[in-house]
Design a protein around this nucleic acid. Sequence first.
RNA 1: UGGGGAAUAGUUUAAUCGGCAGAACAGUUGACUCUGGAUCAACCAGUUGGGGUUCGAAUCCCUGUUCCCCAGCCA
Length: 794
Amino acid sequence: MSTVTTPAPVERRESLDFIRTIVKEQTQDGRYNGRVVTRFPPEPNGYLHIGHAKSICLNFGVAEDFGGICHLRFDDTNPETEDMEYVEAIQRYVRWLWFDWKDKLFFASDYYEELYDFAERLILDGKAYVDSLNEEEIRQYRGTISEAGRPSPYRDRSIVENLDLFRRMRAGEFPDGAHVLRAKGDLAAANMKMRDPLLYRIRHATHYRTGDAWCIYPMYDYAHPISDAIENVTHSICTLEFENNRAIYDWLLDSLFNEPRPHQYEFARLVLDYTIVSKRKLLQLVEEKHVKGWDDPRMPTLAGLRRRGYTPEGIRLFAQRIGVDKTNSRVQIDLLESAIRDDLNARAPRVMAILRPLKVTIANFPEGKTEWLTADYWPRDIDKEGTRDVPLTREIYIEQSDFSETPPDGWTRLRPGGEVRLRHGYFLRCDEVVKDPATGKVVELRCTYDPDSAGKPSGAARKKSAAVQWVSAPLSIPAEVRLYDRLFTVPDPEDVEPGKTFKDYLNPNSLEVLQDCRLEPSLDAAQIGERFQFVRQGYFIVDPDSRPDALVFNRTIELKEGFQAPGREEPAPNAAIARSASRATESSATPTGADNATGSVSQQRERARAANPSLAQRYEYYTNVLNLTPEQADVLTGDVAVADFFDAAVSRHANPRALANWTANEVVRELRGRSIDQLPFGGVELAELVQLIDQQAITNAAAKTVFAEMLANGGHPAAIVKRLGLDQSLSEADLAAAVDQVLAAMPAKVAEYKGGKTALLGMFTGQVIKATGGKASPQAVQELLKQRLDNGAN
RNA sequence: UGGGGAAUAGUUUAAUCGGCAGAACAGUUGACUCUGGAUCAACCAGUUGGGGUUCGAAUCCCUGUUCCCCAGCCA
């Protein structure tokens, strides 16, 4: 049997994630002429892990979905940490996931010359300078999050001097740290990243690709955006912690390139329960021998997962199912495991293996006889065919856990005097239990089989007994089987108690090696990397440690447990405890009632009133005389222009309450940064609109339409109403017709409504109002709808 | 404490214009089964709190709360 070697089709999500939504819009509006170019930009200084898999699936997946391409670019701008070994490993695992970068393999180090030229151009444009402060001084000068930075004394060097210095930096005239190239950003920027970010530093180090050709190296914030632009990337997708860096990204590309240029979008990185992905910590696990290496099957590296037996398809399925969003989240391990099982279920042939053997002698089976029974590789529900023969002999092994002297309720396996089916074979009855007199441990079962029961239905009496796996004692083959459990005992190993480290949460039982396992003989020729389901136990893969006649299997994952045998040790009981504990911590934070508003926006308005007595007076007037709520008055008096707008409205139409609502809710929302007097209409026009509502000349819904029109093009409400034909001239007959038409068009929904789903009334209402062009009044519509629907008249 | 982000079932996520809160995983129950698997069916369960606008709010307005990121010559 060999495992399938083409990617299985992966299920699709029905809706687009926010990145794909953006890409779709932009391909449709032609911004990039329909081009979609993404990139996966690893730094070759470590191994890929499950978190990278999410990013790979996103970047390559988006390209695939929109007929574009994803570049594989190594972001190798730090000579001290990078290595060719990682470059190769990374390529290997991207390919393993079945992704293809075609001929688009790039290295930032190939752009060093170009990058350098752009830097000179920035200098020439007066946008970058050589700073000669040392590292500590630069930190000092940068300020903190609450205080602005100060300009470096070297910030105003002349272009000529900057150019000269920068060229000499390149020429190797200075030692490490003597100078850096910095962008002229904004030292007072609240975004720390914009306080004159470093572009180049001096490093007399040998680069794994460029050797000693360079002694200045670009920083990520400089190299990354320009590399994207050089490659004509359209969508540069990265994780959330780079959100602040986007300001540099945009600043740099706007300085150097024209639209359409690349743009950066950020998504939330994967955080998986019971897993760490920090390079430093992973390295520590390897170096301190908590695991056997980078590809230890307990490691979250792609190397580890592969060796464990996880499939690329399963991992892609997992990525598909967790989706992409900007919410920081923790994914339960079940989601991953379930995806892997789903994939393996359809592709791993079933075989019989005994992990913890219990000897069974079948008393009525002739000594020396071997009966070959035909066994299917696949269960009925899998659409695949294939069989092999398994030998039955007088002495066999079954799983220790399939026998119990004192079984609990609901036990379907073997018990003294009880029966089970030998899978693919006969029924077996346990007649006698043989124990070690010294320990009292069960060492053998004496049984008899029913020679007439092979291949026949179990019958009612035997229906609820299990069908257990077994192997011939003399004809089975030995194997080592390695059982893995989660590496950590807590969901979040990085969330450590004081005085502890993540290593204190290592699961001591994460690996269990079974030496005395017995496999059915068909497994004799199993190849490294082949996957099987050991019936009723889980999915297993042949480990590279295997030698001829000394097979080693890794348990990829257990089958979903439908029944937990009592007495069987649960390896990670702390899991449930830890989980409920973490939940308790989460919910222990009880919201406290807010006394005084301290939000910055409300503070600004308060400050405005404090600074301007006229606003303060108006606040009093609005609350005391016009009877507005404090909240309304607050919003209206935070800005003179807004208050003026409102006053103008009130003087035109004396309904302060309604005008306040419109101003505070609808008008303010549309400002979005601009001042209220930049709107194409004023308070007077708003008042005219409200007056039309008050006079019942138009409905509220129609008023919203008019408002949108005023917003777009200005104009007088009455004129717009006329132009749009929104006068409330809907006759009762017209309304009734609209209602009937809507109901007739949706018989299924009507039935649902009558079945009790009254929430549909809103939907019907909306439909009718739309059908009448906003002319119908909601109250009238709903009254009529209820009449029609509740009378049950058909 | 400044700036930037994010809050929808236990978990990960959907929800065109303001109009039916929909899935998957987990859990529970049942059917089926020569895997206590798979499959099928059903159930459980949700809009971060408080106000407001509206006939109608996850969605709009106001106001709280919580969480994440930023002060590397790392990426």
